[in-house]
Design a protein around this nucleic acid. Structure first.
Lengths: 160, 160
DNA sequence: TATTGTTATACTCTATAACTATA
DNA sequence: TATAGTTATAGAGTATAACAATA
């Protein structure tokens, strides 16, 4: 027996477990929203004004532009966003929140905050802050990275 | 402007970002393995001997038993696992690692450890340990939870 | 000629249903 | 009758390709 690594010390496992736990409940918080979690991210980006064009938004969320078309169709039908012509480029559309969309977003944020609290409940307040801070630093550092996953992988991994 | 929450303080966002970053590279580490990340988990469970029957394994990984059939077909073709008849129940099959499967698993674990190191690189050693410990406690606590996501969600979320 | 957005089509992944063999 | 596993089929989600409008 080659004594493989204990799963519980596997970063992939703990990250996956915690993330899945969060997502499983969070998905219910956004279940009745068109597009689910993705719809939430669209509302969020639109509210911050940095949504820009549909294409920019699609790239931000890491989905194909055709998927963005369907997603926005649904959000628009629900009266949460509108497609406004881009004054600078008549090919492009800018995505903006409606008043209803803004109200919905605020409500979703409240609900997601409760999900966070539930997931972090096993930790005491100081630990929660520590965890948040560390994850935040990692996430920000990752965001600044030149994210060519293929190249990174090649550097890191030797061939079998 | 209703000043929506800053994304960077959103647990969903930081968890998602860090997890995706890990997965994007980790997926390449297991890219040539049948089933990818899932295949790795099968090898891992089989090595620890608690794989049990195909059905038990499928439930562990949260996939349908039919998916497990296809997955094991591929892993078996690659010579990494074998389906042995369960002596106690002739309907069931037990999943065991071949020698090649064990060697492959050890190699994968080495590579995944390097991915972890890369993801955690922005933190100093003490911080890494702290983060690991906190995530681990959360993951274990979650594992012990009665995981009826629907019920939890109802308790946590008010209606819109 | 290249790009934004839309539509139609094809593909991939997963689940459902029907079947065999055991219990 | 119920369960483990397999197979065939249908469904959801996604991407690819072709198109219209504009740059």
């Amino acid at each position: 027996m080659t004594s493989p690594t204990n799963v519980e010390s596997d970063l992939g496992w703990v990250l996956g477990t915690v993330t899945r736990s969060y997502l499983r409940i969070a998905e219910q918080a956004v279940a009745d929203l068109p597009g689910g979690p993705r719809g939430y991210h669209v509302l969020s980006a639109a509210a911050r004004g940095d949504a820009g064009t549909q294409l920019a938004l699609a790239q931000r969320l890491g989905v194909d532009r055709t998927v963005m078309t369907y997603l926005l169709d649904d959000l628009e039908k629900a009266g949460l966003v509108e497609r406004k012509p881009d004054p600078a480029d008549r090919r492009a559309r800018r995505v903006v929140l409606t008043e209803a969309g803004n109200a919905r977003l605020c409500d979703l944020e409240r609900r997601l905050r409760r999900v966070e609290e539930h997931v972090l409940a096993p930790l005491d307040p100081a630990e929660r802050e520590t965890l948040r801070a560390l994850l935040q630093r990692l996430a920000v550092a990752i965001g600044e990275e030149d994210t060519d996953a293929c190249q990174v992988a090649e550097e890191i991994l030797e061939k079998y």
